[in-house]
Nucleic acid binder design. Structure first.
Length: 820
DNA sequence: AGGGTAGTGCTTTTT
DNA sequence: GCACTACCCT
């Protein structure tokens, strides 16, 4: 992460003949299929690689980058590659280095956020920030919004913290700021007026704290480029080849950033660098609209769908051959995703053969389901599969509880990705706040957090007095602390404040760039802070047994800083804070850990495992209750399901429960509508929803039968698991047009009630008639107006103009619409 | 100022 | 089931 201020402009491999010689090319193209080759060798301004799941896109990207460098078409420093996570970035950097035989210095391979931080730190002074700005993570944003809502008494308008943060975030992703939003806001609506107040206060607080939130990192970079063309030009000139992974998940701000970066530098001719081609950087984007799962966060699928319109003359390459999964898994994935209309048809295929069937299981409870997962994992492991090749996915983080309980009892080594992350723990946030307060003296949020942690007798009243004093005298919070004597507080409180201020000043001296011997290592700074503040000592002295674990966590953080110093000898405190702020859930993933990985479906994107367990495939969970009503919600949830399925290489297990605990209460759960979209012959149900409902009223189901339900009948020792199963596939009749579940083959074929109750999906609107002018509501597109109706009978098509998504054509008979 | 307790409301996914 | 808040007591 070292920050090279001047681009390094020396080619890594200087062999002028290599661009034409086939030797090197062959090496890079060996083993690639024709489409992949095309994606690697195409040279033009814009290239869209539509890469289905498992189609080798990382391979294509790394070979493309390596090709550009090997052929001396580009210096490493002219390449900017954007990935979704730091882990993906690290992997790509390593693979490119491997292809080139050496690490390509000066190349930027990073996430959107990391790249923007780098740019912002360099340019911060240009627009009223200092390079030591703090990055507020979502918890920090929430804390700030919380205080603002309280200060402005916005809660009386029914505002919640999450509503306000979500709305601000959404606006920032659309590149709106408080002022631009205020200009078009309706101030007659008191709610909206109050929101504008909140947005303003929030933005001002960030600026005063010399801080950016996650969304700012992108949007402020765009604003910077737009406000200072000469700054933008610097980067436009530098980056000649820009590559963006997971393009389907970019939001408007990220899209705008790419647009700014790929513009032709304006004063090209003046600088005599017209030889650069005169145009903007070449742009390569890779994506798969079927894997777009971040619309809720502002990702705009139009970025990829309209790429060809955005970049005229763009070449499109389609990668459909899958190198990851068996055909059974792919067939299931294809079948599920084909239920999303309004997508370009794309079918994954593989040459590796059918493989084993998908295994299905319905537990009586979440625990029962977890027991099934644990038992199957044990079997897989006995069969020779490594734990780290197995993953368990779920929709919401709260589902980990039952899984963890059973896993612990079964002594299965596992690891939960995401969830309550290490850096989200209160004691770690405390320690990090100490560091932030040292790095950025304006960071009021961090100062407030540590002011009375550990307890120093500085209460809310004192805190308010300090804040008011700082405001009155227009000085930083830190300066106000230094001058605490002027506040005429009690001697004890004044002493405590002065002591803390002194400690922070001492620590600041350690990281002063002008210090003799350079900045002290982060670990030294943290050590000083933790010791002198008695933070760890206080935890150790506490009677609460959990505090011992907290103290150990802080020690662990200390170990992390030492590790950081080892890996980055020149790493500064700022570098450390930046790195920590931008870690993602998957970045923690240690491939050599030898443990089963548990994670949400969102976190799973981009990963692959030999065996995958997809749990909680129930209505209200997948699709999640919250998204079921939103336009586009069910389709996005289906993509999430699709992403989960396509992570599996060899074995796929799908499970659900009849009842699920939530809020400490047990609620009845229904099988997910997506289950019946998987062709029945692909699934072998060990216990289908129908079977489970038949026997589901015994004591095991709801009572104390933890680990009993499944384990007692199919426990370890029953062989492959499928041995004891009345196997499917024997021409199992389907439930008519509504479709049956993949199983319930065996005798006596249950006419289960649930099968029909589940939203039965093949729609038939009968002879619904629509005429131009009618208003309709569509499950995914929202409301719209019919312009025209064409066609006859069952093929009548309505041409509808939707408010949210524009013009669409719909088959009236089957579209999920209703007349308003 | 601080600690302890009772009551409330909540959860989608995350860089 | 838990985390957070408000309130009460020392």
């Amino acid at each position: 992460m070292s920050d090279t201020t001047t681009p390094r402009l020396q080619p890594v491999v200087v062999d002028p003949s290599s661009s034409s010689s086939t030797g090197e090319d062959d090496e890079l193209l060996a083993g690639l299929n024709p489409e992949q080759r095309e994606a690697v060798v195409y040279r033009g301004q814009a290239l869209l690689i539509v890469a289905g799941a498992g189609s080798g896109k990382t391979r294509v990207l790394t070979h493309r980058i390596a090709g550009l460098i090997k052929s001396a078409e580009a210096w490493p420093s002219q390449i900017l590659a954007i990935t979704f996570t730091n882990k993906a970035a690290a992997e790509m950097r390593e693979r490119v280095g491997h292809l080139l035989g050496q690490v390509a210095e000066g190349m930027w391979i990073s996430t959107f956020h990391s790249a923007c931080v780098r740019i912002l730190r360099r340019e911060a002074e240009n627009f009223g920030f200092t390079k030591s700005f703090t990055i507020y993570d979502s918890a920090d944003s929430r804390a700030l919004v919380k205080r603002i809502i309280k200060d402005l008494q916005a809660d009386t308008f029914g505002f919640t913290v999450s509503q306000v943060t979500a709305k601000i975030s959404k606006l920032k992703n659309e590149l709106a700021d408080a002022d631009s939003y205020a200009r078009q806001a309706n101030f007659n609506d008191p709610q909206e007026a109050m929101f504008v107040e909140c947005f303003r206060a929030y933005s001002r607080a960030l600026r005063e704290a010399n801080a950016f939130d996650f969304d700012d990192l992108i949007s402020q970079t765009v604003f910077l480029f737009r406000a200072f063309p000469q700054v933008a030009e610097k980067y436009q000139r530098r980056f000649r080849h820009i590559l963006v992974d997971e393009y389907q998940d970019t939001n408007h701000a990220q899209y705008s950033l790419i647009r700014e970066l790929t513009k032709a530098p304006e004063s090209n001719e003046l600088s005599g660098l017209a030889s650069f081609g005169g145009g903007g950087a070449s742009l390569t984007v890779v994506g798969d609209s079927d894997q777009s799962i971040y619309a809720f966060r502002g990702a705009d699928i139009r970025n990829i769908v309209e790429f060809e319109r955005d970049f005229p003359g763009a070449r499109v390459v389609l990668l459909e051959q899958n190198y990851r999964s068996t055909q059974n898994i792919l067939s299931a994935a294809n079948a599920v995703i084909s239920n999303n209309f309004d997508r370009k048809d794309k079918k994954l295929w593989t040459a590796v053969g059918d493989g084993e069937k998908i295994v299905g299981f319905t537990g009586y409870s979440g625990h029962d389901e977890a027991q099934f997962v644990a038992d199957e994992i044990a079997k897989l492991h006995e069969g020779g599969m490594a734990y780290n090749q197995i993953a368990v996915f779920y929709r919401t983080n709260s589902q980990t509880r039952a899984l963890e309980e059973i896993f612990i009892r079964s002594a299965l080594p596992y690891r939960v990705l995401g969830g309550t992350k290490f850096y989200e723990r209160a004691e770690i946030k405390d320690a990090m706040a100490y560091l932030s307060a040292v790095a950025n003296p304006f960071d009021g949020l961090a100062l407030r957090r540590i002011l009375n942690t550990p307890k120093r007798g500085i209460g809310p009243a004192t805190e308010t007095a300090l804040a008011a004093f700082a405001e009155r005298n227009e000085i930083s919070y830190r300066e106000a602390m230094r001058r605490a004597k002027e506040l005429s507080l009690g001697p004890k409180v004044t002493g405590a404040i002065l002591q803390l201020a002194g400690l922070l000043d001492d620590a600041s001296e350690l990281v002063d760039p002008a210090r003799v011997g350079g900045e002290a290592p982060v670990s030294e700074v943290l050590q000083l802070l933790m010791e002198k503040s008695a933070y760890v000592a206080t935890l150790r002295a506490s009677r609460d047994p959990q505090d011992e674990a907290r103290a150990e966590n802080v020690e662990e953080l200390l170990a992390v800083t030492k590790e950081f110093n080892r890996n980055n000898p020149d790493g500064t405190l700022l570098d450390f804070l930046t790195e920590v702020s931008l870690v993602a859930a998957v970045d923690d993933l240690d491939d050599s850990s030898g443990t089963v990985s548990l994670m949400t479906l969102h976190t799973a994107k981009g990963l692959e495992y030999d065996a995958v367990f997809l749990t909680g495939v129930e209505e209200d969970l997948l699709p999640h209750r919250m998204s079921a009503g939103e336009p586009g919600g069910p389709a996005e949830e289906r993509r999430l399901f699709y992403v989960g399925i396509t992570r599996a290489r060899k074995r796929l297990f799908i499970s659900l429960a009849m009842t699920r605990a939530q809020f400490g209460e047990t609620a009845v759960a229904m099988p997910s509508r997506y289950l019946q979209e998987i062709p029945a012959e692909l699934v072998e149900w060990i216990q289908s929803p129908g079977m489970a409902s038949r026997g589901g009223s015994d004591s095991r189901a709801l009572g104390g039968g933890r680990g009993g339900g499944y384990g007692s009948r199919f426990g370890a020792g029953s062989g492959s698991g499928s041995a004891s199963v009345s196997s499917g596939g024997s021409g199992s009749p389907r439930f008519g047009a509504a479709g049956g579940y993949g199983l319930p083959p065996g005798p006596p074929r249950p006419k289960t009630e649930w099968a029909n109750r589940v939203t039965g999906q093949v729609r038939d609107n009968g002879d619904l008639t629509l005429v131009p002018g009618d208003r309709i509501k569509h499950a995914d597109f929202g409301e719209g107006r019919v312009n025209q109706v064409t066609g006859e009978g069952a093929k009548r098509v309505a041409h509808v103009n939707f408010e949210a998504v524009g013009a669409k054509k719909l088959l009236i008979k089957i579209a999920p619409i209703e007349k308003l």
